[in-house]
Simulated scan of single mutants.
Amino acid sequence: MINTSTAINPHAAQPTSLVALGKSLWRNRQLIVQMTKREVVGRYQGSAFGLAWSFLNPVFMLVVYTFVFSEIFKSRWGGEGGDDSKTQFAVVLFVGMIVLSLFSEVLNRAPGLILANVNYVKKVVFPIEILPVIAMGAALFHGLISLGVLLAAFLLFNGYLHWTAVFFPLVLLPLVILIMGLAWMLASLGVFLRDVGQTIGIITTVLMFLSPVFYPVTAVPERFRPFIMSNPLTFIIEQAREVLIWGHLPNWLGLGIYTLAASVLAWAGYALFQKTRKGFADVL
Score class of each variant (00 low, 15 high):
Val220Cys: 09
Arg194Ser: 15
Val220Gln: 06
Val124Cys: 14
Thr4Gly: 15
Asn28Gln: 05
Gly201Lys: 14
Gly254Met: 08
Ala20Asp: 12
Val95Leu: 05
Ala52Ser: 12
Pro132Tyr: 02
Pro111Val: 08
Ala271Arg: 12
Leu210Ser: 01
Ile114Met: 15
Phe209Thr: 01
Leu155Thr: 08
Phe168Ala: 05
Ile114Lys: 01
Phe224Asn: 02
Val91Tyr: 10
Pro250Thr: 01
Ala262Gly: 07
Trp53Gln: 08
Ala183Gly: 06
Ser70Glu: 05
Ala138Leu: 07
Ala139Trp: 00
Tyr44Asn: 05
Leu93Ile: 00
Val213Asn: 09
Gly46Cys: 13
Arg223Gln: 11
Glu222Ala: 13
Asn57Val: 13
Asn9Gln: 14
Thr259Gln: 10
Ser75Asp: 04
Ala183Leu: 02
Met97Thr: 06
Lys278Tyr: 07
Pro58Ile: 01
Val40Cys: 11
Ile72Trp: 11
Arg241Ala: 03
Gln88Ala: 14
Gly22Trp: 08
Arg29Asp: 05
Thr218Trp: 00
Leu189Ile: 06
His248Thr: 03
Ser104Phe: 00
Ala271Met: 08
His11Lys: 14
Lys275Ile: 09
Gly269Pro: 11
Asp195Lys: 12
Ala52Gln: 02
Val176Gly: 09
Val206Leu: 15
Leu155Met: 14
Trp246Val: 09
Ala266Phe: 12
Gln274Pro: 13
Met229Pro: 00
Val191Arg: 07
Leu175Ala: 11
Val176Ala: 11
Asn158Met: 08
Ser24Asp: 10
Val125Leu: 14
Phe192Asp: 06
Gln34Phe: 12
Thr4Trp: 14
Gly22Asp: 05
Ala110Lys: 07
Ile257Phe: 15
Thr4Lys: 15
Val95Thr: 05
Val133Tyr: 12
